[in-house]
């Protein structure tokens, strides 16, 4: 097995171009498990650990750009103020050791339906910055993730960063699992409100082949909220939850049942919106 350890993005792109079958390695929290389970036998690995271009984050008045190598721990320590829901999602991932290694870019590239940061990013209309031999491009997260663990990334492309809009109101991430920590989500929701635009975002995880938005629920809530008072009726909040649940397409598996996942979405979507209104009120 060949190992390349580039220290710049250009070197990394060249390394991948020179070894098309090579596997990109960031935190390794998904990849190394698959190797040790014998599910993957990589012939080459390109480690992104020393590529400084992938680290750090920046913010302007409208957007926040986060380097792909930003770890969950860094998100918790540095982004709780700007992106509290992302920090909350990061806090719900694995153990401290996993959070010290796992990265935002890795979570996006793995494209698991249960990826914890994905609903938060989707709710913030995130775009993913990619770099390859043909140059750079930016793809909406919504278009990047095409199926369970499948993306529209081209061979040789590397995730450079993720850019979200800067939230103009509260956003909350709620995750359901059968253990109080270190658990793969069986349903999650990221709910946010924008009091200026009078819009609601609701993105769901683990209840479909890809993380998904619930546009009917979003539109319904936006129309039902009293934006001056920052309130909504109990029945409207419940209806918002039900609509979100109806927009989910969960499955039965060994972790949970579709029926429970759908019911859980209704509960956490409603609770998420309540929290947003409480925060903004």
């Amino acid at each position: 097995m060949a190992l390349a350890v580039p220290s710049t993005l250009d070197e990394a792109i060249d390394a991948v171009a020179g070894a098309p079958d090579a596997q990109l390695l960031a935190g390794g929290t998904d990849f190394c498990v698959q190797v040790s389970f014998g599910l993957r036998r990589p012939t080459g690995v390109v480690s992104l650990r020393r590529v400084d271009d992938l680290r750090g984050w920046s913010a302007d008045s409208d957007t926040i750009t986060i380097g792909a190598s930003t770890t969950y721990t860094a998100m918790i320590e540095q982004l709780t103020g700007l992106l509290p829901a992302l920090a909350g999602a990061a806090r719900s991932v694995g153990s401290p050791q996993i959070r010290n290694m796992g990265t935002l870019g890795g979570n996006v590239a793995t494209a698991s339906p249960a990826g914890d940061t994905l609903p938060v990013l989707l709710g913030l209309d995130a775009r993913v910055g990619l770099a390859g031999t043909t140059g750079r491009r930016s793809v909406a997260l919504h278009d990047l993730v095409t199926g369970p663990k499948r993306t529209s990334m081209l061979p040789g492309e590397i995730i450079v960063d993720v850019t979200t809009r800067r939230p103009r109101g509260p956003q909350h991430f709620l995750k359901v699992g059968t253990r109080n920590a270190m658990v793969i989500s069986i349903a999650s929701a990221a709910v946010g409100i924008d009091p200026e635009a009078e819009t609601v975002s609701c993105a769901l995880g683990s209840v479909g082949p890809v993380p998904l938005r619930a546009p009917q629920a979003e539109a319904f809530a936006a129309s039902e909220i009293d934006w001056a008072a920052m309130t909504a009726s109990d029945s409207a909040l419940a209806r918002f939850g039900s609509l979100a649940a109806s927009e989910a397409s969960p499955i039965d598996d060994h972790r949970s049942s579709a029926a429970y996942r759908r019911a859980a979405v209704a509960v956490i979507a409603e609770r998420g919106l309540r929290r947003c209104l409480r925060d903004a009120g």
């Binding site: 995750k175 699992g177 109080n180 920590a181 658990v183 509960v267 609770r271 929290r275």
Partner: peptide, 16 residues
Amino acid sequence: ALSLPGGAGLSADVSD
């Protein structure tokens, strides 16, 4: 908040 049911998932409020 971590001591509520759901723990790190922050899925519950005290009133739930």
